[in-house]
Design a protein around this nucleic acid. Structure first.
Lengths: 143, 143
DNA sequence: ATTCTTGCAAACGGTTTGCACATAC
DNA sequence: GTATGTGCAAACCGTTTGCAAGAAT
């Protein structure tokens, strides 16, 4: 499953419609080769070791771009600002990528805990399922 | 399922170990009686109609307190700053409430889409499952 | 040659913090 | 009476933005 070389990474970027720069290559590789889920700042520190002249702003712009073209995931946050909910039982949330509205997902709600088989001693307190997409009002096709 | 009066809300706050103030009551009720998932600012605007002297800072402190005692949920963000992941297939994340480390959940990963039966025309693009809790290093009991 | 990207620095905005006063218990 | 919460304003800090110079195609 390993053994990706620079050429592979370049191809990956191109496949996602991106121009290739050494900054993008370095940023993507830094993220690809770690199991942590680093922040922009952390990636910046990492990449700076190889390319001391890179700027933090570029890292932000690049990560956002990667996210747009679905090359990487953004684990959190899902909305720009914090959003709250008085309903406590675990239930799913539908978050509109466009207008950022949030609604509860009907059906299949309830207390159905996601089974979590032995995760190296991680003790789960809460769970949260977020489905991102487009609400009826923002669905592509609505001009 | 409805018909909660002030006395019930007061009891709810007390049950969660909170001192009762009219600000807390108003904030909790504002959140309780909406299906939206409002931001602190939105709640502030709402509550200000009844109590024009309330401050935004109080709303922030109060919501954070509510969240701490598990009276309300914070839908997003789950971490203080944005965190990224190069692994694209939908998989679950374990987020430590203490040190904010993130690891992938083993097992049950894969492409198992969460079934989403008819949600009023919401079109799902991505899904994300976040399990919050304590990583082995931060588990209560470790001094 | 043209378009897209980078680097830098300033601006932005949501959230947090400090402190004096007020309120809950 | 004491601990806790509130209001206000300033500070904080992660992120975004504007623009001139540089690189990719």
């Amino acid at each position: 499953m390993e053994g990706k070389n620079d050429k592979d990474f370049i191809a990956t970027l191109r496949d996602h419609g991106l121009q290739v720069t050494y900054q993008r290559l370095a940023i993507y590789q830094a993220l690809y080769f770690t199991k942590d889920h680093p922040s922009a700042e952390t990636i910046y520190q990492q990449v700076k070791k190889r390319f001391p002249m890179i700027s933090l702003g570029t890292v932000y712009k690049t990560l956002e771009k990667f996210y747009e073209v679905e090359l990487i995931q953004k684990v959190s946050p899902v909305t720009e600002v914090a959003r709250y909910d008085a309903k406590m039982g675990s239930h799913h949330h539908l978050v509109c990528l466009d207008c950022q509205s949030i609604q509860d997902a009907d059906g299949m709600v309830g207390e159905q805990r996601i089974a979590i088989p032995e995760n190296h001693g991680f003790q789960v307190v809460r769970q949260q399922v977020v489905l991102q997409g487009y609400c009826p009002a923002c669905k592509p096709g609505n001009s």
